[in-house]
Design a protein around this nucleic acid. Structure first.
Lengths: 132, 132
DNA sequence: ACTATATATTCTGATATGGGAATATATCAA
DNA sequence: TTGATATATTCCCATATCAGAATATATAGT
C-alpha cells in the first residue's frame, strides 16, 4: 500500500512543489484559475488538476463568478501540518526567541524599524550567520 | 516529471506517515533501529528503508555502536518546511496569540503549567503527529 | 572459523503520480 | 444558434513509491 492518497492527506497534497506554489499565490488573495496559470506558468489543465487536489483536502475553496472560478486559501486545513511541524521547534537553534519575535512583531502589526542605532541586539550575530 | 524525489525533498520525505512516526520517536531521543521497529511495529526492512530516506534528506543522523546503529533527529532539516508552514499562521483563527503563547511558555523552559485559570486554548492538538 | 544478532540492500509487483494532449462543460456575447 | 472564453476532465504513459520476501553485510561471542 503506497502512501496515503495525495488527495486525502494534507502532507501529501503539499509535498508537490506546484501545489505549494499555488497556495503561495492564494495566500495573497483570491484568484481565478487564469491568473494562477499565468503566475505559475503551468499548463492550465495542470493547474486545474492541482487545484482539485487542494480542494479535496480542503486547502482551498471556490466561488464562481461568470465563467471564472475563483479559488481562495483555506488556511485552517494546514493546521495539522503546522501543529506537527512546530512540535520540532524546540529542537531548532535559538528558534525559541525567533518564534516569539515573529509572533510579537506581527502582533505589533508591522512595526516601524528602529532607528539606525541598531546595535547588536540579535539581528543575527555576525558570528552565527545561521539566521536563515 | 513527477514530484521531487522523496529522497531529496523534505516535504516529500515527511509526507509518508511512517516516516513521521519515526521522526516522532526520534524526537524523544536517539534510538537504535530495533527500538524503532518495536515502537512503530513496522517490518525491519521497512524501517531501514524509511530511515534511509530520512537520512538522505538530512532529517536524521546516525552513530554506530557495535552492531547497533543509533539514529537521532536532526531538526534543522525541518526548517524549510517549518518556515513555509508558518507563513500561513497569519491566516489561522486567533493563531497569533497562540503562537506567541507557545513560544513564551516554552521559553519558560517547561514551566509549571499555569494555574487552572487556563481556559480552552492549548487543547490544541492531542492528535498532532500520528496521522498514521 | 562458526553462529547469532542487528541492520541494510536488492528484487518484485501492485499502485499512484504528474505531465501532455485532446476533449468536455459551462457561460457569456452577438 | 453560433462562437469565444474559462475551466474541468479524460486518456495515456513514463516514472516513482511502497510493502514484502529474500538476501547481504557487519559485528560480537564462542
Amino acid at each position: 500500500m503506497p502512501r496515503a492518497a495525495t488527495s486525502s492527506d494534507v502532507f501529501n497534497a503539499v509535498a508537490e512543489p506546484c501545489r505549494r506554489a499555488l497556495l503561495d499565490c492564494l495566500a495573497k488573495g483570491e484568484h481565478p484559475v487564469g491568473t494562477l496559470v499565468e503566475t505559475t506558468r503551468l499548463a492550465q489543465p495542470s493547474v486545474s488538476k492541482h487545484l482539485r487536489v487542494l480542494k479535496e483536502v480542503g486547502l482551498v475553496a471556490t466561488r464562481r463568478d461568470g465563467r471564472q472560478r475563483f479559488y481562495r486559501l483555506n488556511a485552517e486545513a494546514i493546521r495539522p501540518m503546522h501543529d506537527w511541524v512546530t512540535t520540532f521547534e524546540r529542537y531548532f537553534d535559538h528558534q525559541l526567541d525567533r518564534v516569539k519575535d515573529r509572533a510579537e512583531s506581527r502582533q505589533r502589526e508591522q512595526g516601524q524599524r528602529p532607528p539606525s542605532g541598531r546595535t547588536a541586539r540579535d539581528t543575527s550575530n555576525p558570528k552565527s550567520g545561521r539566521t536563515r
